Computed example of a mutant assay.
Amino acid sequence: MSIEFSVDRPFGIYLYDYFDKAYTTVVGSPATEFTFVQGYTPLSTLPEVLVGCITYFTIIFGGRALMNNSKPLPCKFFFQIHNVLLTLVSGALLALLFEQLFPQLYRHGLYYTICSEKAWTPQLELIYYLNYLVKWWELVDTGFLVIKKKKLGKLKRIHVRFGIDWNSISEFLHYFHHSMTMALCYTQLVGKTTVSWVPIILNLTVHVLMYYYYFRTATGAKIWWKKYLTTLQIIQFVIDLVVIYTVTWSYFAFTYYSDFLPNFGTCAGTESAAAFGCAILTSYLFLFINFYRMTYNQKKQQKKDL
């Protein structure tokens, strides 16, 4: 195996070749033959996504009701394996994504890479699809919380000042984020939104750290950088929104008001996918800011009360 760093080989080797061999072994056909086709590719239709979300909430709330009078089930080992695998898979997808994007950014620049239809390559489409499948897998996170009977908010105090139940806010954020991220990835795949790689690459970066954090804490380790992980999630959504709103503005300005509104030109993707993406990412930003504020403000208040 020769190591030769170049624009097309930012890691010294071409990772996609090794991925292609692994993919072919598992699927039975080369990765180069993959195409996302609605109604043919698994989990590629809107009814499947809707049924997935409904099933997710049914299992979660039904499972919590069934577990009310039961003891937590032992699942520490499986929870650790779950988080290790998600850390490794997220890291692998992140590396593959970077390998595909770096040559485009180097040769064609940022605007081409986030807006050109030609930037949506078969290799990237497969990585985006696998990332979408991982979002289905990540729904299992909540299943572990149910069988462990673990409340998402460790703080027992009620925010009396604002009349807000901390556990309810924390649980809503978890359920909403998990289900809607899966739906978000689906809409961007269908819409062939070229700018998808920006939120995906940031999300994968956060998830490598997040699932590693979950794994370490499951082993009993005390991790000092949890607060900074939440901060990183907020920064992620801020960057997402700056980029997404910019290209969405440019698309609509160029398409409908090019005579008098400034713009950078058009951008690949459907209008419905752009609208859904803007709405979901905006809601994430406000939810995580509120999560951060309530978590660490409440901890400060508890320290004052001691």
Rank of each mutant, 00 (worst) to 15 (best):
E4S: 10
F5Y: 06
R9D: 13
L15K: 01
D17Y: 10
D17C: 08
Y18H: 06
A22V: 10
T25D: 09
V26G: 10
V27P: 13
F34A: 14
T35L: 12
Q38C: 09
Q38W: 09
Q38I: 15
S44C: 07
S44Q: 07
T45P: 05
P47C: 05
C53H: 13
T55D: 10
F57V: 00
I59R: 01
N69F: 15
L73A: 15
C75H: 14
H82Y: 13
N83V: 00
V84L: 08
L86Q: 14
T87G: 09
Q104Y: 02
T113I: 03
T113C: 03
W120M: 11
L124E: 06
Y128H: 12
Y132W: 03
V134P: 15
K135T: 04
V140N: 05
V140H: 11
G143V: 04
R157W: 13
I158K: 14
H159D: 11
I164E: 01
D165E: 09
S168D: 15
S170K: 09
H177A: 02
H178L: 05
S179L: 04
L189N: 03
T193P: 11
T193Q: 12
T194E: 06
T205Y: 15
Y213W: 05
Y213K: 08
R216Y: 07
G220Q: 01
I223D: 11
W224Q: 09
K226L: 03
L229G: 04
T231G: 05
T231Q: 08
Q236T: 00
I239Y: 00
I239R: 03
D240N: 08
D240Q: 04
T246A: 07
Y256F: 08
F264P: 06
G265A: 04
C267N: 05
T270E: 04
E271Q: 12
S272L: 13
A273G: 04
A275T: 14
Y292A: 06
Y292W: 12
N297K: 15
N297W: 14
